[in-house]
Design a protein around this nucleic acid. Sequence first.
RNA 1: GCGGAUAUGGCGGAACUGGCAGACGCACUGGACUCAAAAUCCAGCGGUAGCGAUACCGUGUGGGUUCGAUUCCCACUAUCCGCACCA
Length: 803
Amino acid sequence: MNSRYDYAAIEKKWRAEWEKNPINKEDDKKPKYYCLDMFPYPSGSGLHVGHWRGYVLSDVLSRYKVLQGYQILHPMGWDAFGLPAENDAIKKNIHPAIGTANNIANVKRQLHEISAIYDWDREVNTTDPKFYKWTQWIFAQMFKKGLAYEKEMPLNWCPSCKCVLANEEAKNGVCERCGSVVTKRNLRQWMLKITKYADRLLTDLEGLDWPEKVKKMQTDWIGKSYGAEVDFPVKGTDLSLKVYTTRPDTLYGATFMVLAPEHEMVNEIATPENKKAVEDYCFAASTKSSVDRMTDKEKTGVFTGAYCINPLTGKETPVWVSDYVLSDYGTGAIMCVPAHDDRDFDFAKKFNLPIIPVISPEGEEEGELEKAYTGNGKMINSPAFNGMTSAEAIKFAPGYLEEHGLGKKTVNFKLRDWVFSRQRYWGEPIPIVHCPHCGAVLVPDEELPVLLPEVESYKPTDTGESPLSLIDEWVNTKCPKCGADAKRETNTMPQWAGSSWYFLRYADVNNDKELASKEALKKWLPVDMYVGGIEHAVLHLLYARFFTKFLYDIGVVDFEEPFLKLFNQGMINKDGAKMSKSKGNVVSPDDLVRDYGCDSLRMYELFVGPPEIDSEWDDSGIDGVFRYLNRVWKLIYNYKDKIIADTKETEFIRNKMSCEITTRLEALTMNTVVSGFMEYTNKLIDEAKKNDGISREALETLVILLAPFTPHLSEELWKELGHENSVFAEKWVEWDDSKLVLNTKEIPVQLNGKMRANITISTDENKESVLEKAKDALESRLEGLNIIKEIYVPGKIVNIVAK
RNA sequence: GCGGAUAUGGCGGAACUGGCAGACGCACUGGACUCAAAAUCCAGCGGUAGCGAUACCGUGUGGGUUCGAUUCCCACUAUCCGCACCA
């Protein structure tokens, strides 16, 4: 054994050894553990230390589970469709498939440096026809069930990406990918009916072991609300306007109505003298950017000239049009209660509309309202509800309206259907043929995959058509149903398609009969631990849950939730900013592996801070971990031939260490695991020096505990301790609870709550004796004082209260 | 605007159910080894006063509960995150 810790040689040796003899062997006698990383997009700039963080964490867990006797599925793959590869292809004039393959090769090389126990035989790649065959197949099954449909409607259009965006990709009216301001465009697109699953997506969140934050984000995104639909007859016609409200209790206070500019009845009800103004307003609204529509706080609007009748008061309510009303939520029309809604209040003030309060705040005088009162209170001016509180009325009102045939109880969701087509080349072709006679016809399952054809130019167009539409020989085909001349769908699927189900494919990557066999799915799924960034809280994670639920409904999988436990690792920043090539603050793992070794970097990735919090990369921080591993090396080097029997102290330290490391590892507080290692190893080193020797149990415990974190070092030291087998063939350490306390203990003594002395007691010492000792220790300080109270918390602390 | 989270030395951060605040590490200071340096080892390292034992102050701010509060309660401030005209 070398006196120096030669990490480079050790790591090279064991990596080769594991290549020949993988430490994770499939064995159906063992329980399974599926530990999954969110698979990366193979970008050209490669991995930085921030990417390592999650991968190290999941690998530590996987190796820990190996030691606990599980068979592990810990796979890796590539989410490789998408715009960057396509844009890169346009720039370099190479096929995106080639650029993608190059990037994969590079990132794969970098991933090898982590020494994770990935099973590369199970690699998946979303751009591989053998894979996207099944992405298309899932779409086909959705089509058959009526969950995939075509619709023409105003959609989010990113002028820079030149394609439509899903609602989830256009938060705040800005493209999630490139930050451009999104415009609205009327386009015919493929939609997936995710809204049909809204309730299940909401209620099933409850049982998941996920961060509360993510559950809340999904809950808010789904946005379930309870209320009522109320019909307002349009004066002088047979028409009526349907509105949705969550505040049916305030119906007596509804003094006007507002329609979204896109509402279908706008034209119908506008009076001739107002028609021109209304049309002008609606046209202006249609050209306004989504951002402006969302952020303009100043209300605008136009009167239609029409009036509705408030069904409860019988009074006339003028009907207005304003772009603060959303056309695609509720009914696209609202009743306005300016007294109790901020937005309606602003509108009423601006256009001088009547304000009638119907809720009176408790204990306050009625008077001219300066702003809307949105709190609870007593119902007033509301014959049917007077005497109730607003909380009572809100429950009572829907039933009352139903009884009188004025409306009905309803729930509404913010979640919209998923816009599922993109006008770009580098994605899965949608397996549809458009026939002049039969309409949209599915490509039969047995003809899948519909291969992505070669094309001259990948450049997107401004027309809302995919580059695929330029390839006549591909576009022109026969209708699978009637054989007539027909055209292929030229849109492709969004980037999220493959990632919505890839975790199923790992179970059975080579299957060409099914997306995965029933047996394989039963064996490995669902995912026990899913590790990845928070940025997918409502995108990927919502889509994947939706796909899983659909596949459950058609009998492909037998579970409804794909990811039982989720962990979001924080980002690693440098100089206070997210690492990026353009900022030049990228820290490369390659250099650190060269200078400190993989084991040091693995351990430092965990030590840098609490794993769920964003952390700042500290260049010299890794020195501390490196020094620590050198101390471990020296401990074994110096004492492996000086083995003595366990002393009371080492027995205590190794039991305590086993207990602490395991508890902290289970809690995923990885930074404290590392500090725990340092703390207890330092203690063992002190003991070894004191006794000029140390027990075999102490050294072996340390080496096994370290194995998931520093696998190469542990293997080497395990061999140095005289073992033939791999350390990963061992069992995870156990400890003896009865050895977690020593028989004597030092406890603090306080006088009036201030720490004044320490006393040594034996663990079973009685209260009287402890207090006696404590008072002795405080003797001089107690002179001239009267003891008022004596507190002893057994084994913890003594506090004497004296005056 | 609404909702959520966080606040501890020069820095990253520990502290289990209310019980020695600052574990562990970085940086720094002094010492040993060395011709010298690096590496390593030893010691110190919240603030103020003191040669010193020690004393007082100290977990964002102000109050409260308690023998005892980083931890619980109330109010406030700052920062970060999510949502944002969803009726």
